[in-house]
Design a protein around this nucleic acid. Structure first.
Lengths: 198, 198
DNA sequence: CCTACCGATCGGTAGG
DNA sequence: CCTACCGATCGGTAGG
């Protein structure tokens, strides 16, 4: 490992550790990833990691909460816009597609590894997720109220839509032949078609 | 090593071990589940498990392949029926909803823990899955050809639909208030609406 | 199916 | 950031 010639702003060692850990967590899962694995990717001995982080679980929780915060703040912008309910739904779905399609390992880790958090982080994460889902539900119900959305159960529709996008988080290495923009169009088209008034 | 005598009369100890292991794998993940965890649930010492199974990974692979075989054989029945392409798609989606909504721990383990298989099982599993997906793709393309299905990319549509159903595998403990039949209708309605000719 | 126990490896610490 | 090393625990084996 030589110098990183990124023209970007300088990353802290802690950021590098979080990124390498996220990649490993996505590949092997949290439990199967060892501190020695992470240290190897970063290029230091395992003991040296502890100068930058307090432990393995702190790495996981910082990954989970940083992406959760990204979702929440981007949702706030969409919620405070003047768009119609159905357009807000479309924008939220696009947000999810973009985050998952970028194949940032963060998305995989937040979606699949959060359950390895212990209390109190475990409960806090669940609470954050519940709040996010409730905001999303409110918009869906607005769409039902104004007649632009037709679904028989808003909760089931929400979970179905959010779940349907998650395959993208593992997609990058298996289907490199697909074009991101056309994938985005197809998914959004299918989902919006599914909930829109005929 | 002693001879293994197979008793088919009733539920064997091996079956009990596989079931308890599947439940634990769903809860904590494969890597975080120890043989002592499994032994505790079964009611024996860890060393005694090895009279019925050859190791931890064999437990995982038997779970993954047994459900994969269930999917394959049920798909065969649907494929050999006289139904139209769009009706076959609907039946396949119903099959997925039913298996995931039953909340059998098998579904979670097959979907999320298969990556912990080592070679050659890992490759064999991937090959089985690829074959299944290709059969499914063929029917979608039949639907496109006969004009009953309208999607801009059959592969993206397939992954989106299959992925959209997976949230059900974790649903049982978080949303006990929902009715299975109405959930089924909402999901299938949304997805079929999304791909059907307007 | 048990007791006894193994080599390996885990997350993490001490001390420089 | 390193070397050295810890107690705990892992999957699995020996032998009865």
């Amino acid at each position: 490992m030589r110098e990183m010639s990124k023209t970007r702003a300088k990353k802290t060692k802690k950021q590098i550790i979080l990124e390498e850990a996220a990649t490993l967590f996505r590949e092997k899962g949290y439990s199967a990833t060892t501190m020695r694995d992470i240290a190897g990717k970063v290029g230091v001995e395992a003991a040296s990691l502890y100068n930058h982080i307090t432990g393995k679980e702190q790495i996981l929780s910082q990954i989970c909460f940083s992406l959760a915060d990204t979702y929440t703040s981007k949702m706030d912008v969409i919620l405070n816009s003047n768009e119609s309910a159905i357009d807000k739904i479309k924008e939220l779905l696009l947000l999810h597609v973009e985050i998952n399609a970028m194949s940032s390992p963060l998305a995989s880790v937040m979606n699949d590894e959060w359950r390895h958090l212990t209390e109190p982080e475990h409960g806090e994460f669940l609470e954050k997720r519940r709040a996010y889902e409730n905001h999303f539900l409110t918009i869906i119900e607005e769409g039902i109220a104004d007649g632009s959305v037709v679904v028989s159960d808003s909760k089931v529709a929400l979970y179905t839509m959010l779940s349907s996008i998650r395959w993208l988080q593992h997609w990058y290495h298996s289907n490199k032949d697909m074009n991101v923009e056309s994938v985005k169009e197809t998914i959004i088209g299918l989902l919006m078609n599914g909930i829109k008034k005929a």
